[in-house]
């Protein structure tokens, strides 16, 4: 059992391409909408509380990849990762192919590991698609595509990013989002294995996502907020501060890695103990 066989299998499924198509579609809609939509506010955007780069993006194509990531990382990327991870073991069990993989034999720990790698790869591809499609339309549609100028909220001095700094920050942001998505995907992988039902697994992931978002809004539960994935989900936007605010991102990564390690340990242990009756 190798990751490449797993990738061939995913690539042969229409659903994989539909999900990546959706991921590509949203930044496209945003880019076209911003460029050709109602121009009443253009050049005079209502800054409000919006992060600075959102304001900048309305004028500068170089900001589009980051806006795309803001839009997608809060829901669509978690959603497609939920579907993929729920199906990873849940789909094999529901379809009966799990028992045939295990008797080939593929060791259970290895199968679990390959599936986790497949979830990671899918999350990475979806994130890269988001950024690249944003970059493509930002460069192709927007009248200006110049170094993205960033600054701390409230600080008037803006620093334009050089090409390396720009792509470096995009990579860090993407990497952060991928780790967050893998943490969510670990839930789908585990629940899919336990329930032998891909639908149940991705329902649990989406449910967990929504529940964590709600709890994260309740001030009285402030103490548990740092334990929630969603609390840290958008912290990657700190790469658009000058200088980068690493601390909240590091905390977020610690939280994600703890989820991945914890859920994967439980999954491996329980998969090993389990009677495969599907």
């Amino acid at each position: 059992m190798s990751l490449s066989a797993e990738v061939r299998k995913s690539a042969s499924r229409l659903r994989t391409w539909v999900m990546l198509g959706l991921v590509a579609l949203l930044p496209t809609i945003f880019a076209f909408g911003t460029r050709y939509g109602d121009r009443g506010d253009r050049g005079r955007p209502d800054a409000g509380d919006a992060p600075f780069f959102l304001v900048e993006t309305l004028r500068n194509g170089a900001g589009v990849p980051f806006v795309a990531l803001v839009i997608l990382s809060s829901f669509l990327l978690p959603l497609v990762v939920a579907v993929h991870s729920g199906d990873a073991l849940g789909g094999e069990a529901a379809g009966g192919t799990l028992r045939y993989l295990l008797v080939r034999p593929v060791r259970r720990a290895r199968l679990y590991g390959v599936k986790l790698a497949s979830v990671t790869l899918f999350a990475a591809v979806a994130t890269v698609v988001t950024l690249l499609v944003g970059l493509l339309w930002g460069a192709a549609l927007f009248p200006t595509f110049r170094p993205l100028a960033i600054g701390s909220a409230g600080a008037p001095r803006l620093v334009p990013l050089g090409a390396w700094a720009y792509s470096g920050r995009a990579a860090v942001a993407g990497g952060y989002v991928v780790v967050a998505l893998v943490a969510l995907g670990s839930i789908g992988l585990l629940v899919g294995m336990l329930t032998a039902s891909p639908g149940a697994a991705n329902g649990v992931v989406i449910g967990a996502l929504i529940a964590m978002q709600i709890v994260n809004q309740i001030d009285a539960l402030r103490r548990v907020h740092p334990l929630l994935l969603t609390h840290w989900l958008m912290e990657w936007t700190n790469v658009l501060q000058a200088p980068v605010r690493w601390q909240p991102m590091l905390k977020g990564v610690v939280c994600f890695v703890a989820y991945i390690a914890g859920l994967t340990s439980v999954g491996l242990w329980s998969f090993q103990k389990r009677d495969v009756l599907s």
Partner: peptide, 30 residues
Amino acid sequence: LAAVGALVEEPAFYKNLSGRRNLLLYASMG
């Protein structure tokens, strides 16, 4: 088990793939 071939209850395949593609996938595992 690599020296054992098995049919456990129903056979199971990836139904949207051809018979040959299914066997090629199974053959690449193990």
